[in-house]
């Protein structure tokens, strides 16, 4: 599988990364280099192998359904690049 320019543009859009047209050829070559190298995995017989998700052998725990924090509005907002009152501000979304 190899990426063409249109696919690189689409993936960048999915990843919400602005990519200038001039960068596309270089990115395309680099990504294809990495993907070509990854291709060797197809040689491994994985028939019937359960995919390993997560890094540990431990079962994930459930916690008690209880509020454990809150009331930290100012801390949550403290690092906002732009805020209005107690809200994060963004460009107009709904016309």
């Amino acid at each position: 599988m190899s990426l063409d320019t249109a696919t690189v543009r689409r993936v960048a859009s999915l990843a919400r990364l602005r990519v200038e047209e001039a960068e596309l050829p270089r990115l395309e070559a680099e990504l294809n280099g990495i993907l070509g190298w990854i291709e060797q995995l197809q040689a491994v017989d994985t028939t019937g192998v359960e995919p390993m998700a997560g890094g540990g052998a431990e079962q994930l725990r459930l916690r008690e359904d209880r509020v454990t924090d809150g009331g930290i509005q100012q801390q949550v907002l403290a690092n906002a690049p732009d805020r209005a009152d107690v809200f994060f501000s963004v460009p107009k979304v709904v016309e």
């Binding site: 599988m1 995995l41 197809q42 491994v44 994985t46 359960e50 995919p51 390993m52």
Partner: peptide, 15 residues
């Protein structure tokens, strides 16, 4: 591409 790459990698990881 999810199955061809990501699931495959998770299977090899199990091996």
């Amino acid at each position: 591409y999810y199955d061809a790459y990501y699931v495959k990698a998770q299977q090899v990881r199990a091996l």
